[in-house]
C-alpha cells in the first residue's frame, strides 16, 4: 500500500504559488486576446464581402480543427524557421492559445448574433437605424446574453489548456510541479495537488456561471 505524504509539498509552496500565478495571469491574457480575435473572426464571417468571409473562415477552421499541442510546438519551432520570427516561449504560447481560443469564441459570438430574430434588426432599420446602430443597440445586447454561458464555458477550457504551455518550458503550475516531482520523487502527491488546485479555482467559477445562466434565463 502506497504511503501518502502530502507534508513534503510544503517546502515547494513558493514554487507552486509562482506557477499558479503564471497560470492565472496567462489565462487572463489569452481570454482577453482570444475574445478580441473572436470578435474579429465573428464579424469577419458575417461580412458582406466574400473575401473577408473566406479569410475569417479559413482562420477559424485552421485553429479549430488542429490540436492545440501541435499549434504550440508549431508556433515555437516552425515560425522562426519559416517566417524568421523569433519568439519567447511565453509569446509563442500566448499567441497560439489566444488564436486557438479565438477560433472557438468567434463561432460562439457569430452563433449568438445570428440567433437573434431577423425581425429585430428589421425593426431597427425601419426606425431609421444604420446597420451599425441596430447591431449595437438592438442585436448585440440580446446576443451577448445568449453568448455568455458558452463564452464562460470556453474560458474554463482555456484555463485548463494553459497546462500545455509547460511543453515550451513556460513556468506555469504544471511546469513547476514537474520540477517539484523530480526533486522530491513524489509525483503522486505533486500531481494530485495540482489537480486539486485547478479544481479549487474552477468549481467556484462554474457555480457562478450556472447561477448567471439561471438569472439570464429568468430575465428573457
Amino acid at each position: 500500500m502506497y504511503q501518502w505524504d502530502f507534508g513534503i509539498l510544503w517546502s515547494y509552496r513558493w514554487l507552486f504559488l509562482n506557477g499558479l500565478g503564471v497560470t492565472v495571469g496567462f489565462t487572463v491574457v489569452i481570454v482577453v486576446l482570444g475574445l478580441v480575435f473572436g470578435l474579429f473572426g465573428a464579424f469577419g464571417t458575417l461580412s458582406r464581402f466574400k473575401a473577408v468571409r473566406l479569410v475569417a473562415l479559413t482562420f477559424i477552421e485552421a485553429f479549430r480543427c488542429t490540436p492545440i499541442l501541435v499549434q504550440l510546438i508549431w508556433f515555437y519551432y516552425a515560425l522562426p524557421i519559416l517566417a524568421g520570427v523569433e519568439m519567447t516561449p511565453i509569446t509563442a504560447s500566448a499567441l497560439a492559445l489566444s488564436l486557438y481560443g479565438g477560433s472557438f469564441y468567434s463561432e460562439i459570438i457569430r452563433g449568438g448574433i445570428v440567433s437573434i430574430d431577423r425581425g429585430q434588426s428589421e425593426a431597427g432599420a425601419a426606425l431609421g437605424m444604420t446597420p451599425g446602430q441596430s447591431m449595437r443597440r438592438i442585436v448585440l445586447p440580446q446576443a451577448i446574453k445568449r453568448m455568455i454561458p458558452a463564452l464562460m464555458n470556453q474560458s474554463i477550457i482555456q484555463f485548463k489548456n494553459t497546462s500545455l504551455v509547460s511543453v515550451l518550458a513556460v513556468p506555469d503550475l504544471v511546469y513547476q510541479s514537474q520540477v517539484a516531482a523530480h526533486d522530491s520523487y513524489r509525483p503522486l502527491e505533486t500531481y494530485t495537488a495540482v489537480a486539486v488546485a485547478y479544481a479549487a479555482i474552477l468549481i467556484p467559477l462554474t457555480i457562478i456561471v450556472r447561477r448567471g445562466e439561471k438569472r439570464l434565463a429568468g430575465s428573457e
Partner: peptide, 20 residues
C-alpha cells in the same frame, strides 16, 4: 437609406418589439 426610413413608420406582423 436609414435617413429615408426614419420618415416612414412600419408595423410588423410579429410586432418585433425589443425584448431587452
Amino acid at each position: 437609406l436609414a435617413k429615408f426610413r426614419a420618415t416612414t413608420g412600419m408595423v410588423f406582423q410579429h410586432f418585433n418589439l425589443f425584448p431587452h
